[in-house]
Design a protein around this nucleic acid. Structure first.
Length: 295
DNA sequence: CGCAATCACGGGATTCGTTA
DNA sequence: TAACGAATCCCGTGATTGCG
């Protein structure tokens, strides 16, 4: 990044974007959020660069490097670039701390796949103008690609974690008398979701909550959610059974979780890690407790 | 009392399943 | 198929708690 002024706040040399300048009735948009903290951000940037130079002085080399000079790019060119090369959108957005939600809120463009966008040319124009108002004067190309890489890795990790719930549900179907499937039920006007339940329709007989708790500080929140959901389920389906399958990497604290989940409404609490073996063991144990007379 | 550690909370991100 | 809502993870901030 550049030590010089950022284009957004410096000279307004870049195209302004109408959507960002409309009155918002006191509610902020991304530009306003940024503007508010800009002085602090610029001060920090100067200090960070200074410290980096001092800290790494002996290891800093000067090399020739490709730089993308955003301040020379007209909005129409940027729009065309995005249309012709959709892959470039994500790194540009990420470099500005912008994401799909901001585009939706500020530009009223819904459901952009920021990784592989398919935009109309009108949308590309809007996004280009919007981006240019946030982009710095220039960014080194490898830095930009690195930013994309970080975002991509983060996304893929989330995707992988999302598969864990499916593995547990598949194990329930393999070893239990399902079919187990995600389903909803209503209690007191509110709708609740069970990650795995059987049967798919009619009165719930078995409801399972499948949860990952990866940070210690989330334990209260997650346990409260489980206890609440169990109570709601039992309030509606008095004869049903409720169980929880939990991923919690602090094994020595599993008894804590179990005791927090002690409730007449919860019939089983089991733990599993990412391995197929622990999932199988947990699911078998849980099924033994909630299936009872079935079969 | 002052400082450090911990807690609670909320905002922002992405993914997935459901629904219109 | 597009849009939406639920769920989960990450992070920073301010409040609270605990210790010397």
């Amino acid at each position: 990044m550049t030590p010089e002024k950022n284009s957004l706040f410096g000279g307004e040399t870049t195209p302004t974007n109408d959507a960002l300048n409309e009155p918002t009735g006191g509610y902020g948009n991304q530009r306003q959020y940024v503007s508010k903290v800009l002085p602090a951000a610029e001060m920090r940037q100067r200090e960070v660069e200074k410290e980096l130079r001092h800290a790494f002085g002996r290891y800093i080399e000067t090399r020739q490097i490709e730089v993308i000079v955003f301040e020379r790019i007209p909005a129409t060119d940027l729009a065309r670039a995005i249309l012709n090369h959709p892959l470039i959108l994500k790194p540009l957005l990420a470099a500005c701390n912008l994401a799909g939600r901001a585009l939706k809120r500020d530009l009223k463009i819904d459901n952009i796949d920021t990784y592989e966008p398919t935009l109309t040319s009108a949308q590309a124009n809007a996004v280009a103008g919007y981006l240019l108002s946030f982009l710095p004067q220039y960014i080194e190309l490898p830095a930009l690609s690195r930013i994309d890489r970080v975002s991509f890795i983060d996304k893929e990790i989330r995707k992988d974690k999302g598969r864990w719930e499916k593995l547990v549900c598949e194990a329930l179907n393999l070893y239990g008398h399902g079919p187990f499937k995600k389903r909803k039920f209503e209690a007191g006007g509110q709708v609740f979701e069970l990650d795995a339940a059987t049967p798919a329709k009619g009165d719930v007989q078995i409801g399972i909550d499948i949860k990952r708790i990866e940070a210690r500080q989330d334990i209260h929140k997650r346990c409260d959610e489980i206890v609440n959901k169990a109570a709601k389920l039992k309030a509606v389906f008095r004869k049903s059974k409720f169980g929880a399958v939990i991923y919690y990497p602090f094994i020595q604290e599993h008894p804590n979780v179990t005791s927090r989940l002690t409730s007449p409404n919860i019939d089983a609490v089991v733990f599993a890690s990412g391995s197929a073996e622990t999932i199988e063991n947990a699911v078998r144990l849980l099924l033994a407790k909630v299936e009872g007379r079935k079969l």
